[in-house]
Design a protein around this nucleic acid. Sequence first.
DNA 1: TATGAATGAGCTTTCATTCAT
DNA 2: AATGAATGAAAGCTCATTCAT
Lengths: 228, 228, 228, 228
Amino acid sequence: MSAPKPVMETSPWTPFEDRRRARDEKRDAVLRMAVRLFLEDGYHRTPLARIAERLNITKPALYNYFASKEEILQALFRLGDEQYEEGFGPIERGSGSGLEKLRAMIRAYAGSMTTDFGMCFARLDDRELAEAPRAEVRRAKRRYDLAFRTQIERGVEDGSIRSCDPKLAAFAVAGALNGIADWYKPAGALPAEAIADQFALQLTEGLAARADPARPAGKPKTAAKQEG
Amino acid sequence: MSAPKPVMETSPWTPFEDRRRARDEKRDAVLRMAVRLFLEDGYHRTPLARIAERLNITKPALYNYFASKEEILQALFRLGDEQYEEGFGPIERGSGSGLEKLRAMIRAYAGSMTTDFGMCFARLDDRELAEAPRAEVRRAKRRYDLAFRTQIERGVEDGSIRSCDPKLAAFAVAGALNGIADWYKPAGALPAEAIADQFALQLTEGLAARADPARPAGKPKTAAKQEG
Amino acid sequence: MSAPKPVMETSPWTPFEDRRRARDEKRDAVLRMAVRLFLEDGYHRTPLARIAERLNITKPALYNYFASKEEILQALFRLGDEQYEEGFGPIERGSGSGLEKLRAMIRAYAGSMTTDFGMCFARLDDRELAEAPRAEVRRAKRRYDLAFRTQIERGVEDGSIRSCDPKLAAFAVAGALNGIADWYKPAGALPAEAIADQFALQLTEGLAARADPARPAGKPKTAAKQEG
Amino acid sequence: MSAPKPVMETSPWTPFEDRRRARDEKRDAVLRMAVRLFLEDGYHRTPLARIAERLNITKPALYNYFASKEEILQALFRLGDEQYEEGFGPIERGSGSGLEKLRAMIRAYAGSMTTDFGMCFARLDDRELAEAPRAEVRRAKRRYDLAFRTQIERGVEDGSIRSCDPKLAAFAVAGALNGIADWYKPAGALPAEAIADQFALQLTEGLAARADPARPAGKPKTAAKQEG
DNA sequence: TATGAATGAGCTTTCATTCAT
DNA sequence: AATGAATGAAAGCTCATTCAT
């Protein structure tokens, strides 16, 4: 029953914002396509033309959203970073023993690792980037490694984690988690949740101090059928 | 009684063999240079010209030893495979509980992973290869994954490893080990031996059934100073 | 009654078609330049760079129109084939004795042979092509040989051609015609028409003087001044 | 019963000549292999390495006999030329009407054309050669063309050949003959002799049935089964 | 005389990026 | 904002030829 609003009377910003939103949506579409293709075929074996083609646009149109192929990669790394950051931040700010936080981090990291942007963060080669953005990526990666290490150190101190070399321990944890990208398949039999749970358990049970033999290890009952 | 030795015996290297040896040495030199540069800069960012240049030869000279860049990569994968095979074979043929063999394999794998060829096997992208050689590489990779999994399964059966999802467990172990390539530095503070030992311990203590609470976990007191 | 013409009708060339036309024109220009250079210098001695240079573009620009050098060659063969096909088709579908049709074919073939594309069809080496396109070319060549042979056979049957080995006869005719490419020069003294006429006569009537004075041989009085 | 000749007493030239003979034999072997491969695959698609390989020698060994690939080609052209020369010389010096000599030449030319060297003379591209040797080849080719033309002119004068454009007539004859290389197969059903005979007849007598039944056309009885 | 190895020159092709429209 | 076309800068590979032995 409301009469049609005359366009001109609405906020003069609306068309602009509309346009910006459309633009951002397209930019995102580029990133989503890029991450998929980069993961599938590798950065070097994915020409910009193919990304464009899959999006039904033309190669130079990509340059409306990104200044270069490298900038796309850079954006992907940043999105990946955000994935992990969102998971880690709350855990770090929360409370709990070192072991508990470590487990939570493992779960969070595993969860992120099963997303496209999360995988790309772990698997794409930051050596493609120029100095500055590359440094940023490496800083981010070190940040997660340190987060693991810190909780391990805290756990050793608070007695929840047995004595160990925290650095090496963190490397092992991160390595196992990054490795997920090598075999995970979204359509596979193992849901991301299950993987996260199992890894959290398996990677910590070996580190957790084991005071009570009466406390039996959890029973991972899920039969993994993923990949052969 | 001592007749003059026939000429052939004086020189253990007939000219022909001499030449062939020189040739093989050069071929090896190409591979050693290639693996270093491929690991350092990545396959795509390493033009053949740079490999040649570092060897003080010219680009086409490489074609005396390899038919294509891809063939170099293929040879590297094969050498890497041999590294692991040498370590795994004896363990598989030997005796021991599932847990013992798993630990031995972890140690062997970690050891191979700290060599150039071992790293290249784990890190270079087999998607650069054509169908046939790629299949070979993937078969080899699966073979090691299966070796881990098999011992875990055996361990579960013989009681040395607690109940778990062997597939996922093997992925975690292999992932942690492959991750070594991401941070290991030959000149670093952590000798390969130490890494192997620590990983063998850390990755299995979480899996091993813990019958005796009196048996304390080992005390890895090595201070890790490697990479930040 | 004359409503204003819709815009679309004012320009017979929509921008899209306009562009496509320009594109096709350029593609044709590439082919025309290529055929000239290939005939002049040979396929192998004509780098793509030279074709491009003569067209005032750069080498990779050619790849906008053709996927490879071989594809250019393939296109040339196809254009050549069309040349001959256009001449042969009507003759085959028409009527006349074997001899009459054979003569018409000789004239048509000679005419095509004096064009660039016709020459290229006869002279460029189809062994440059991959299996499939090469098979196509050979099929086309055989097709013309068979056309000659068929008319000779018909002529033998209808009495217009005397008894002979049609296969060998067709080879001789085709050979003489293909040979035109070896000496014909567009700017030469002999117009294509004259050549066609003379060949049609000579290849069917022979050179030997006739025993029967009543049927005088034609009098080709054209003074040939071409090439030396 | 003759005592063994002491080597030293025989002509001091013998070893030298022996060596030279051996050398010449090898040189000939190179040429025979080269002509075969050049005809089969084309000059550019035949690397020297392949010629060497087929001869069980190495690539640089070829340079003992020829200074360059081009020189091999040059030698082949010269050998081809000799083939034709041997056939044409006697005919030219002999007697007979223009028509008779023309026929003899056609037969001779056809015979040479069915040999490897003869074919190479007609088919290989003299544009591979440098100026001087190329001029030589072209002179030779023109020489045969002129030989045909001369006899045709003589025939027209002596009445054995009817009035025609001798230049064009010679081109047609030479073209048909050169075309033999396009289909002739040494193992084919048509012996070289038969081809020579048929061409000599057909190219002079023509294909058209004669008006005068009193002078019957020759009866080519050979059923051609060659190539399809 | 013959060989293994090396080289220089050249070729086709790919691709990120730019430009005129 | 988008396109078709073009470009520059490489890269991998081939091959005739040379060289030390």
